[in-house]
């Protein structure tokens, strides 16, 4: 199934009111360094292209780049790691978003229930905890709130070790935004993993949108 590049995925999501970091795509190491200077250090650099779905596994994410030289080196290495199958690529430069908590959210097309919005606990323990809740799209804000209330780990959504509680309304924005994308048959699935909770706001630091193949006309 074809995917949108991370940058294009985030553009689609931002248009639905889903918080994403302010980021830029550069075509070469100098452009990446300039972008990083505009964004402010430290930054993260990732290889970005339509065909790239498993960045972490391929080592295509560089975190905590503190100055222009580090960005330039990382960008050169990332561009050098691209393969012909990746197609046209660039370097995505984004601010380092920090927070103790990670959430996940997404849109899936279930064989039984059709398009469904998902929200859950993210981070390294996510798979073990498996705390997720689904809703049948389209969802209202009330229903998005009920999904959030349906998570078992409510304490993690409250104030935590000096960080404020997860902003419920902003998280509802994310879920309702995902729900709106369900109406677009060309969007097969959306995976926001992770969203880092920064100053209470869940920010989609990585995003992958699966789209229907050329001429496939949507569906699953």
């Amino acid at each position: 199934m074809p995917t949108l590049s991370e940058a294009d995925s985030k553009k689609l999501l931002a248009a639905q009111g889903i918080p994403v970091p302010t980021e830029e795509v550069a075509s070469d190491p100098d452009g990446a360094a300039a972008a990083a200077t505009r964004i402010g250090f430290p930054v993260v650099a990732k290889l970005c292209g339509d065909g790239i779905a498993h960045k972490t596994e391929r080592g295509l994410v560089r975190l905590g780049l503190a100055d222009p030289a580090a960005v330039r080196d990382a960008a050169a290495a990332l561009l050098g790691a691209a393969t012909p199958e990746d197609g046209p690529v660039g370097v995505l430069v984004a601010p380092m978003v920090s927070g103790l908590r990670e959430l996940i959210a997404g849109l899936v097309r279930d064989a039984q229930f059709g398009p469904c919005v998902m929200v859950g606990l993210g981070g390294v323990l996510a798979e073990a905890v498996a705390d997720v809740a689904f809703g049948v799209a389209p969802i209202t804000r009330v229903e998005a709130g009920e999904m959030i209330d349906g998570l078992a780990s409510q304490a993690i959504l409250g104030p935590l070790r000096g960080e404020p509680a997860v902003d419920r309304e902003r998280l509802i924005d994310v879920l309702v935004g995902l729900s709106a994308l369900a109406g677009d048959p060309s969007v097969v699935s959306v995976d926001l993993n992770p969203m880092i909770v920064s100053a209470g706001v869940p920010v989609a630091v990585d995003a992958l949108v699966e789209v229907a193949g050329a001429g496939a006309g949507g569906g699953r």
Binding site: Q112, F113, A133, G135, V136, E143, E146, G150
Partner: peptide
């Protein structure tokens, strides 16, 4: 049987 948690969410909704 459908995926448990999707069913669960749909029924809550």
């Amino acid at each position: 049987a459908s995926e448990g948690r999707v069913f669960e969410g749909a029924m809550r909704q």
